[in-house]
């Protein structure tokens, strides 16, 4: 692991069940292509965990390995404290997952598809079908054939399929795909409510804004490696800060700021103002100093706003840096 652990370092955890997911040195290759390259991943229980990465980074492969859909070439892993694949059946009994696009038997209704899946789970799963359908807002359409469902409805049915097992751990691969804005809002709320109930949700998504709003912690994977991992506030705390300044005479304002000894990384003229990039951890006194320099220099300041880097900008920054070094 190359960055901050979500909870602690791997050495501090001995598979005592306090982690929802734990992998050590997990590797998987398809011929010459390395899909997962010695991944150490620690996901604590009871949080929403985002799993991010560019296309082809190995996100879905890791999920497939965790769920026993494909075999790992090396490494160890456990789900909910149970080593996998040795105790895969016990571990998966409390796991619900959507991997890739959720697909079902099109000739069956949503309810019948859930009956097929419930039959493969514990006997109590069948009694949870209606509640699961209601929770994802599909109860009214439960008796329609799945072939008539939209993509978004199939996503909801996929979540319902996860819920019939009363899971402690949900692994959702791109659950927002096909959802309209209201559906995405509902999904976000539902994920937060699941976490509030003490469940763990692992969310793989390209929608970084949604991940930032939904998740407590993230891991970024690229080329089979986890390159960053930790709580979102901690990860973003290490990123630069941009001070947006709306003012008169932006060019002269830039010269004034440049002539001071402020530790600005870059100063760019953007429209009717400046964008001043400051190092992580810059204090509020620096903002006041910028305002003082400009006003003293006879420049009218209309707005001055510090903007923290978003997860999306941080993600692009991290992944583009990797691209530069490749």
């Amino acid at each position: 692991m190359k960055s901050t652990d979500v909870v602690a370092s791997p050495e501090q955890h001995g598979g005592d069940g306090s982690l929802a997911v734990e992998t050590r040195g997990l590797a998987k290759r398809f011929g010459a292509n390395v899909a997962i390259n010695g991944v150490d991943l620690l996901i604590p229980r009871g949080c929403a965990f985002g799993y991010l990465g560019p296309n082809g980074a190995g996100k879905t492969t890791l999920i497939r390995v965790l769920l026993g859909l494909t075999r790992a070439d090396a490494g160890t892993m456990s789900l909910l404290g149970h080593p996998v694949p040795k105790h895969r059946d016990v571990a998966l009994a409390r796991v619900g997952a959507i991997v890739d696009e959720p697909r079902f038997h099109g000739h069956l209704t949503g309810r019948q598809n859930l009956q097929v899946l419930a039959a493969a789970r514990e006997p109590a799963a069948r009694s949870r079908i209606d509640a699961s359908l209601e929770r994802v807002g599909m109860l009214q359409r439960a008796d329609d054939r799945v072939s008539k469902y939209s993509m978004g409805m199939r996503q909801r049915l996929g979540v319902a399929a996860c819920l019939i097992g009363d899971p402690e751990l949900l692994i959702l691969d791109e659950p927002m795909n096909g959802l309209d804005p209201a559906g995405m809002h509902d999904m976000r709320d539902m994920i937060r409510s699941l976490v509030a109930e003490g469940r763990t949700v692992v969310l793989s998504s390209h929608l970084l804004d949604e991940v930032q709003r939904t998740c407590d912690a993230v891991a970024i994977v690229d080329r089979g490696n986890i390159i960053r991992q930790g709580p979102i506030p901690e990860l973003l705390a290490g990123t630069s800060l941009t001070l947006q300044v709306d003012c008169s005479e932006p060019d002269r304002a830039r010269s004034l700021i440049s002539s001071t000894n402020l530790a600005a990384t870059t100063i760019d003229v953007e429209g009717d103002g400046l964008a001043i990039t400051l190092p992580a951890g810059t204090s509020r006194d620096v903002f006041a100093e910028v305002a003082r320099v400009l006003v003293t220099g006879g420049i009218a300041v209309y707005r001055l706003e510090p903007v923290q880097a978003s997860l999306e900008s941080w993600f692009l920054q991290v992944t583009s840096r990797l691209g530069d070094t490749a």
């Binding site: 409390r94 109590a124 209606d130 929770r135 009363d166 509902d186 709320d189 409510s193 109930e197 469940r199």
Partner: peptide, 18 residues
């Protein structure tokens, strides 16, 4: 989708079902 618990089994906290 409803965020609130509806009383059905899936909304209950993770049980110790063996």
């Amino acid at each position: 989708m409803t965020a609130a618990s509806d009383g059905g089994a899936p909304t209950a906290s993770p049980s110790a079902l063996g």
